[in-house]
Design a protein around this nucleic acid. Structure first.
Lengths: 365, 365
DNA sequence: GGACAGCTTTGAATCGATTCACGAACTGTT
DNA sequence: AACAGTTCGTGAATCGATTCAAAGCTGTCC
């Protein structure tokens, strides 16, 4: 079978560019030209080739195309948790932006596990993706720099690239934590708690730092950090149960949660199992302002991040770095904004100031 | 540059198998063997090759591997809505199962648009993925059959393959609708409404049909269908506003929602804007039993589907069909189960029967 | 009629990993 | 020491699309 012509795409299997060329009576080069630069091919030929393509049901083999080009047109996105609406929204933003250039975004889930994360990065590396968007959990700095110097740029998402020569798109988490805490302090709360984790997650450290900085400036106020294993419902529920186990005076009077999932989980247990009143007995601020926040048992005050924008911007930067690898890394930081709802400013508590609940950032509904 | 040796992986760019071979002082064939069948290579050689691989930071180029193999080891998953937790849970199930065989799952979002869906299917086709998992919106029957006969199997997810020679993994939506309606009827409700859409979505048709069949058997009961454009929060909110615009006697006394997102959106508006009591004035049953269902303003009764299992099973079937394309298509249908919570069985209304609320299917919390 | 420009098309080389028929080297037997 | 039987390693062919130097063709103009 060495010198024979390739098998025709007869009964099954897929037609190749050669089959098309043969049927159309042209060379493979011409078919390729029709596919990629139709303007330099005579119209009549273009038509003949198209007819052949249609008749054979030819579909370009991207593996071959990619092998030649050296790079694919796919962007890899590794998120901490697919089930967290924050990340799916970021993904949507990225998809939209990528689509404009005919690029695709492919999503993988690290589930907050550095091992899974490493696996996915390695996978995308073998795929020679155009670039990587990562919301990192493990320490990838070195690895990503190596990747970058071998032609695969990476952009950190939802995390500022500290020191490393890497671009990032993030939101000022310190500010977010500060704003959340300040709001609670303004409402008269004094014994705050920050619930989130794992503690080595940069976002959590920053948000906690923000809370602490606000508390430090407030008379007689204190914070304690309650670490959770992850950032899902169940983590919030567990933390809330731990709080309920204390006797009432030892409990905080306000919670800043690491994200909305944790906040909602906690909310559920505090009210359902502990019969506490929210916000009366315990005020709660979430983080991310996911769609569910406003639909919770008690609509949740939350720190909103421009999710779509994060995804879009990350893709833009990635695209630019892919084209010009010598570009200096950029670190974009967006400002978060607080959305006030009943979980902090319920009827029983004085609202901060007239119009503030709707004014800071109007809830969508 | 025609006959010259390939450039060494010096300053930048990636090392190829040839660079490794050269450095290790063996042939490319041997390197490939070390990579794929290390058992047939002398241990000393294996070691030498591994050392070279490490020194060069060699990473296998999957495009080339794939080109030769004809197929990739990636499974494409096209979902209706990434933001719907139902689908991310299915994706998790699929990922877990695929991971067992070293396969990867890549997710794309059709957003209930047949055009985007077609684009994604085409994309996966050019990628020569191992197979496709699709929760279809448009009419893909013909296309998928063609794909299958050209070696790319597809499994329909959350939808029974009607007539077509395709496998599918679904849940009995007619039964789900029936159970939801029967529950409401048992509680004494008589004027039901089904809220969901778009109307041409098979799942919606089936669920509605189930509701109608239960209603038909109940004395003096009626249903109306309220069509929504999609299945997100906002769709539920809009539908609820339409209901509130009617004068009270013309409103239904119970809602079956197309999914939980719609249910939660409706719940929110009915209570928040309409000041209705749920379930007193309006009982609501959702669909999917996503995690948020139990955390809603009023914890939501919902029809639970075995989400993880759907994903896992779909991957299993896909794998089998990829290995043996002659396999007859299988159509698996799981049974849904009703989870009763306060949105239907609140204090003000009699519970169906002792223990039933927890017995039918205990809530996770 | 011939030369030349401009437009089309050709086809061999290439990307990197895999495969496999073949040969080299080695072991053990008689 | 010769030969059969193994074990290892080799390297050319291959997958399918792209590229680009070179060849073919058409038409124009002198």
């Amino acid at each position: 079978m060495s010198h024979a012509h390739p098998s025709s795409a007869a009964s099954h299997g897929t037609a190749s560019i050669r089959d098309v060329a043969e049927l159309a009576g042209v060379s493979v080069g011409t078919v390729s030209n029709v596919l990629n630069r139709p303007d330099i091919v005579r119209p009549a030929t273009v038509e003949r080739v198209h007819a052949a393509i249609k008749e054979l049901g030819f579909v370009r083999n991207d593996a071959a195309r990619q092998l030649r080009a050296g790079r694919s047109t796919t962007i890899g996105l590794v998120v901490l948790d697919v089930r967290n609406p924050f990340f799916t929204d970021v993904a949507r933003g990225a998809e939209d932006e990528a689509g404009r250039d005919g690029l695709s975004v492919v999503m993988a889930n690290s589930d907050e596990s550095p091992e899974r994360e490493a696996t996915h990065v390695a996978y995308f590396e073998t795929q020679r993706v155009l670039g990587l968007l990562i919301s990192p959990i493990g320490d990838l700095g070195e690895r990503l720099e190596r990747l970058r110097s071998s032609g695969t740029p990476a952009v950190l998402v939802d995390r500022v690239a500290g020191g490393r020569r890497l671009s990032s798109v993030a939101v000022d988490d310190v500010e977010g934590g500060r704003v959340a805490a300040q709001h609670l302090l303004d409402l008269g709360r004094r014994r705050l708690a920050f619930v989130g984790g794992p503690a080595d997650l940069a976002q959590m450290q920053d948000r906690l730092a923000g809370v602490e900085s606000a508390v430090a400036k407030a008379e007689g106020a204190s914070v304690e950090a309650i670490e959770t294993l992850g950032l899902g419902f169940e983590d919030g529920r567990r933390a809330a149960r731990a709080l309920l186990a204390r006797h009432a005076p030892a409990r905080p009077d306000a919670l800043v949660a690491g994200n909305d999932l944790v906040a909602i989980g906690a909310l559920q247990v505090l009210m359902g199992e502990g019969h506490l009143r929210v916000p009366d007995d315990m005020a709660i601020v979430g983080y991310d302002d996911i769609d569910f926040a406003s639909a919770a048992v008690v609509p949740l005050s939350s720190v909103r991040q421009p999710r779509d924008l994060i995804g879009q911007t990350a893709v833009q930067i990635l695209r630019e770095e892919a084209e010009d690898p010598s570009l200096a890394p950029r670190n974009l930081v967006f400002k978060p904004e607080l959305v006030v709802r009943e979980s902090t400013a319920g009827r029983a508590w004085p609202r901060p100031s007239p119009g503030s609940a709707g004014g800071v950032a109007p809830a969508r509904a």
